[in-house]
Amino acid sequence: MPKPALKLKKLDKSFADKVNRLAHTDSRMCFQCRACYNTCPFVQAMDYSPPAILRLVLLGQEKTVLNSTTIWTCVGCNTCSTICPQRVDMAAVMDALRQIALEQGVMPAQPEALIFHNAILDSIKKYGRTHKLDVMIRYKVKNLDLFSDVDVGLKMFVKRKLDMLPSRVKNLVQVRSLFPNGNGNGKSYGK
């Protein structure tokens, strides 16, 4: 007899509990109808589909889930959370999984997304607002990807879409005080 992939008796339910708590939803309600699968615009770019991720969560497959590209491809558009007949908030589950991955120092399977999110947060820390040009430069430098998309950047520049001067908050001290220590002095999440 082939070795079973999972021993159901040994399933770890604590992972699903944690995800549910962080996501304020009950992922056990999922009956795998795959409506979310059919409606997610980015499912092709994910290694596990959204309902597969949910099933893996219920089966306690923490490592697989946290190492998936899915959680870093999901943009949180809420299409899935809107269509779910069981009121499972899939987008919130994805949020929770990203946070658990960071907490546990799991290197994202798709680091570009994390680099981008960090670039946004760095910009907020610096100006209190996001400054597109600043975000793009930070993203490109960290991602060592200086030359792709030059034409798109130029088009935007010509149309004054990438402003040179950022719009900024006056009381920056106050905004910066909101960032946790780990991210208050140039350090980023997930490093």
């Binding site: 962080l22 943009v75 949180g76 949020d95 990203r98 946070q99 960071l102 994390l114 981008f116 999110h117 960090n118 946004i120 947060l121 907020i124 209190g128 607002r129 996001t130 908050v169 006056k170 009381n171 106050q174 905004v175 909101l178 960032f179 946790p180 991210n183 999440y189 997930g190």
Partner: peptide, 25 residues
């Protein structure tokens, strides 16, 4: 007066508390 970024999907993705704090201000 002096509004700040809502945190966008990035704060939401990385740190829920930060997302709430940025909105709170």
């Amino acid at each position: 007066k002096d509004w700040n970024c809502c945190g966008s999907s990035s704060a939401h993705s990385l740190n829920h508390d930060l997302a709430v704090d940025l909105a709170s201000r």
